[in-house]
Simulated assay, not measured.
Amino acid sequence: MSTDNRHGDEAAGLGVEDGIRTLLLLMPRMVGRAKRIKIPPELESFSLAPRHLSLFAFLLFDGPMTVNALAARLEVAPATVSLMVGELSRQGILRREADESDRRRTIVSISDEHRPAIDGWLARGAGAWRRALEPLTPAQRRMFVDTLEAYEQGLDGT
């Protein structure tokens, strides 16, 4: 393996094996820290899980949307999202309203009452990503995101 160039000049770069070693050590620490982000007290009684964070993030960043649109973004079956939305709407975390342009469709959104707590819960992670991504060029950000997606796909064996 090559030497650790973490503190060297940019031209030195990082060898593949050193990158793998560094990331294999870094990823568990990142996941551990992310898991330690506390659920806001006002949401603790709702038995929320990591799968809910993704659903909340889409609704916060992209706004209200249909169950089918959420399912496509979450890459799960609409029935799965429908069950999650049903559970969360019964608890008052999400709102379901008929789509004015097509009354057969339901639009899902975060309830006004719980939006600040959910926004605060996601803000720490969003702030960390913002600090990490802002110094990069758009092309570097694209490469970083593509690399993480390739890693995720590699874990799935796809």
Rank of each mutant, 00 (worst) to 15 (best):
S2W: 00
S2G: 14
S2M: 08
D4F: 05
H7K: 10
D9T: 15
A11C: 09
G13N: 02
L14I: 07
L14D: 04
V16A: 13
E17T: 11
E17F: 11
D18T: 14
T22S: 08
L23T: 09
L24P: 06
L26D: 12
M27S: 07
R29F: 06
R29G: 04
M30G: 05
V31H: 12
G32T: 14
G32V: 04
R36D: 12
I37T: 15
P40S: 13
P41H: 01
E42I: 13
E44Q: 10
S45W: 02
F46P: 03
S47R: 13
L48I: 09
L48D: 12
H52E: 07
L53S: 08
S54K: 01
A57Q: 05
F58M: 02
L59E: 00
G63M: 01
P64I: 02
V67G: 03
V67F: 00
V67I: 08
N68Q: 14
N68C: 01
A71P: 03
A72G: 07
A72I: 00
R73W: 04
L74R: 01
L74F: 01
E75P: 00
V76A: 11
A77M: 10
A77Q: 09
P78Q: 00
T80P: 02
T80N: 09
V81T: 07
L83G: 01
M84V: 01
E87Y: 06
Q91K: 15
I93P: 02
R96L: 10
R96P: 08
A98C: 05
D99K: 10
E100Y: 12
S101G: 04
D102Y: 06
R105I: 06
T106V: 15
V108C: 02
V108Y: 00
S109E: 01
D112Q: 13
H114F: 15
A117S: 14
I118Q: 01
I118S: 00
D119P: 04
W121L: 07
W121M: 03
A123F: 08
A123P: 04
R124C: 08
A126N: 13
A126F: 15
A128V: 07
R130L: 11
R130C: 08
R131Q: 14
R131T: 08
A132K: 05
A132C: 13
L133C: 07
L133K: 07
E134G: 03
L136M: 15
L136N: 11
T137H: 06
P138V: 03
M143I: 10
F144N: 06
V145D: 02
V145P: 00
V145H: 01
D146T: 06
Y151F: 14
Y151E: 03
E152V: 09
E152Y: 13
Q153L: 09
D156V: 11
G157H: 03
T158R: 15
